[in-house]
């Protein structure tokens, strides 16, 4: 890690830790949301940035985890210590099943993950006797484990921040491990990795499940923040928006998905305060990203810096 990146990480962390001292409740809520969706975008990027698979069903793991935790907490009064791990487990089990999608590549993978994602949305929407249909599950309490209980949004913000920081650390270890490098190798050339003796299909399957587990964790964090879950949580729109977050921020990096999450959620909040067609504005962001910033903001910054240092090194 070079020095400028260390500086960026320290500045971002310091800003995140100090945020409650200068931001009001609205901004704290937005920040919590940005961090949670950043984690979801990071999980998508484990596949997109490191294996090249473009999954559009990650809202499913997110939603199944959120529903599981919410239903256990609200309807059965299960304590957090069981409900939260159960949520992550349920989402991960779904990823074990949906992992069959890695039998396909390229455009088929994209289309099949879209179709799989719609199963979850459809079941959440139609199986109303269990999921509450359109109304979803409401009144999810703050998490509490024994005497340790979260009682305010401020406390929950720090809890989320701590968990997500641990995840980012683990993620960094994962992608720089031999397994993570193997994934990068598959992205570069699957046939070469296969001829080197790697079981590429298994690699991809494991990556898919890990990515689903991370998305499930984000789902559990989300349901305790939002205190409510409905079929929209598992919709295609969420899946595709978090993929866009990863790309806008900069795919293949750790900070990128969080930046993307901040940019997109910030933009939507800002636009929707004065303009009714905010979905159309999001659509324009999709189009603009593809046409002008396919490597995202991190890529854009890198390109600009290269240009600048290039000029500086020029003797003339």
């Amino acid at each position: 890690m070079d020095r400028s990146r260390v500086t960026v990480v320290i500045v971002v962390l310091a800003a995140a830790l100090a945020l409650p001292f200068y931001a009001g409740p609205f901004w704290m809520g937005l920040a919590t949301q940005i961090i949670i969706f950043g984690l979801l975008a990071l999980s998508v990027d484990l596949l997109l940035g490191h294996t090249g698979l473009f999954s559009l069903c990650h809202a499913s793991f997110f939603a199944v985890a959120a529903y599981t935790t919410a239903i256990l907490q609200v309807r059965y009064g299960t304590p957090t210590v069981f409900a939260a791990p159960a949520g992550v487990l349920a989402g991960t089990l779904l990823a074990l099943v949906f992992g069959i999608a890695v039998r396909t590549r390229g455009v088929y993978f994209i289309l099949i993950t879209i179709a799989l994602g719609f199963i979850v949305w459809g079941v959440a929407y139609r199986w109303s006797s269990f999921t509450g249909g359109d109304n979803g599950v409401t009144n999810v309490p703050f998490p509490s484990i024994g005497p340790l209980a979260v009682t305010s949004h401020l406390q929950y913000y720090y809890l989320v921040l701590a968990i997500v920081m641990l995840c980012a650390l683990g993620y960094r270890m994962l992608v720089s491990s031999p397994f993570g490098l193997g994934l990068r190798g598959i992205k570069a050339s699957e046939s070469r990795m296969r001829s080197l003796g790697y079981r590429t299909a298994l690699h991809l399957y494991v990556a898919f499940v890990l990515s689903g587990a991370l998305a499930s964790l984000a789902g559990v964090l989300y349901v305790y923040y939002n205190r409510f879950v409905n079929p929209v949580t598992g919709s295609f729109q969420i899946s595709v928006e978090v993929a866009l977050m990863a790309i806008v921020g900069g795919s293949g990096t750790i900070i990128g998905p969080f930046i993307g999450s901040g940019v997109l959620l910030g933009l939507r909040n800002w636009v929707s305060s004065f303009f009714e067609l905010h979905a159309a504005v999001m659509g324009v962001v999709f189009i603009a990203t593809v046409l002008w910033a396919p490597d995202g903001l991190v890529g854009l910054a890198r390109r600009l810096r290269k240009r600048r240092t290039g000029i500086r090194k020029d003797p003339a």
Binding site: F54, L56, G106, V107, I110, V240, A243, L244, I247, L277, H278, A279, A280, M282, G283, V284, V285, F286, I287, T289, V290, L291, P294
Partner: peptide
Amino acid sequence: RRTGENHLAQVLLTVGLAFVIGDV
């Protein structure tokens, strides 16, 4: 046409377009 044969770009672009059309 500007996306070439990049399916990922095509999907994002056309999803964005669908959002715009739907909202309008």
